[in-house]
Each structure stands twice: as C-alpha cells, then as structure tokens.
Amino acid sequence: MIELHNIEKVYKKNDQTIRAVDGVNVSIDKGAIYGVIGFSGAGKSTLLRCVNLIERPTSGEVKLDGEDLTQLPKSKLRKERRRIGMIFQHFNLLESKTVYQNVAFPLLLDGKKGKQVEGKVKELLEFVGLADQAEKYPEELSGGQKQRVGIARALVRSPEVLLCDEATSALDPQTTDSILDLLRQIREEYHITILMITHEMQVIREICDRVAVMEDGKVIEEGTVFDIFSSPTHQTTKNFVSSVMNDKIPESILQALDSTRHVYRVTFLREQASEPILYRAATQHHVEVNVLYGQITQLQGEPFGSLIVEFIGGEKEIFKALHSIQQSVTVKEVTRDAS
C-alpha cells in the first residue's frame, strides 16, 4: 500500500548539514497499523510528513499503490492527498469554526455542498461519539474530544491511509486508551491503513502490527510488534521495550544476589507460556523453583512472559533442570551487575 524507498531529508542550517531522515525504507501492507517509534529528534515526524509530501524528501520514492507521489505535479499531488487523512498531536482544528464546520472543512475544499456533506459529517460525528457537540467551538472541548474531531475530519473524505502524528501524546492515559480504541475501530470498519509515529511504547504495544524503531534518521530495527517486544536487539529498542514491559529486575532482588544462588531469567514465547515447563523440570530433576519476579502478558493476542527464577538444590540437578528447560524456552543467568 505504502512503500518508502531510500527516503532522505537533508537540511542545511548555518553551513551544517542535518540529515533528519537518512535512507529509510519502509513497506506498509494494506489495512495494517504500522508504528514508528523514536525519541524526539529521531526524524520520525519528518518521515511521516514525507508520506503526504508536506515535507518534500531530498531524495527517495514515496509510493502509494505503486504510484510515486514525488513525481506528481502539484495539482495532482493535492488530489492524491485526499486519499491520505492526517491527525496531529495538537489537533490543529480551526478555532473560528464549529465542530461541524471543522469536520466538513475538507469537503468544503472539494467544493461539495448540501445534503451530501451533511450526511457524511453527521455519520462521522456519530462514529466518533460527538454528534451532540456539533455546534460547539474547539475551545469548548476537552483534548480527547478535540482529537475525535480531528479524526472525524481526517476520515470525512473516506481516505485509504491515515497518518497519525503523535496523536495521543498530548492526552492523559485514559483518553489515550479511548483514542486507541477508536483507531482500532477505524481499521475494522473503514479498512484504513494507519501509519503512526509516537514516542510512547505502550501505544505501539496496544495497537500496532509492525513497528520500526528510529534513531538519528535511520531505522535501526523493524519487525512485528511481537518479535520486537520479545527479542529486541538494539539497545535503544531494549530501552523502549523495558519502558513498558516492566522487565527490569528490581534493585532489592539484585542486591540479594550472590555467587551461591542460581538465578535465571526465563523468557516464554507464544504457546510456551501455557506449558508447565518450570514445574516439569523441577519435579523431574528434584530441584525447587522459586519465582522472584516477572510477568506474563499478551502481545498482539499472544502470551509472552519473562520470569526471574531461582533454582534451589544440588549443582548437578540444577544443571540438568536448566538443560531441559533450555530445550523449549530462553534462559539467561542473572548476575548482580547486569540484568
């Protein structure tokens, strides 16, 4: 659906060359929710703006259904932009217009009038749950309501793609959840491809199918949300993952470690998480298993667990138990100075 080939965006600032986006390749399937995460300044916002060419990439191709948008003349590009809705961190609503007029705005630009506009606007206000707020002005609304107006406005032309620029970053956690629910609903009801950028890892975990991690203008890691969360390789990715996965071992446990104890991190993926692997190993090899810390959670509807486990018993038995566990799950020793 969307293919970004070798996108580069270079700025010149006081003789300095800044590579905001540095050779990014991304391919997004139709109907997917694709997330791009990175710290501020990583270039994700610029990358997003390259998709609808609000920022023109210095080089590279932006393909929408195989058509390279960068090659289109301005007037044609404006037409293509109707296929791409966009929502913003700070909503960017017209303050001088009512909720209704804001949602109707894109249709007004198309020169549409009357019943056709009214029906579509009402349908979308209904969809985002603001049918009774139509005559209010943006400044009378809460942040979450403003974002709902932004979403209704972005959807009013029935686009195929929705770009989300930190759409939940200015909202409180509860409102964030309700907006994410709405985005999920959009995918189901309107079959729209969603590309979102965020610095909040829980947003990615909640809603995305695939994720790209950006740093210094480059994509440093890319994959399904399950793969990235269960086995991040790059340090930045690991930091992002641990920010929501709560997999850092508490200081109190690390403090109590010494060379006589046998503490391991056991990571379960998918169906492994539903097997009594630890119990079996313990009974079979006559060792005691004590779970010190950890959690089992769901990623994209699949179980994923990370447990800090202490084995108590003879050296030989523990070795055997570990060996048998390692057949099916990942085991790593935990030492005091590292996780």
Partner: peptide, 14 residues
C-alpha cells in the same frame, strides 16, 4: 497557528 495551516495543506488545499 501554523499547525492549522499544515493541516489544510495535508488536506490538499490550494
């Protein structure tokens, strides 16, 4: 607000 102008641009406004 430049953001509103950007929003209009993203909608393909002339």
């Amino acid at each position: 607000n430049p953001g509103v102008v950007e929003a209009a641009e993203s909608m393909g406004a002339t």
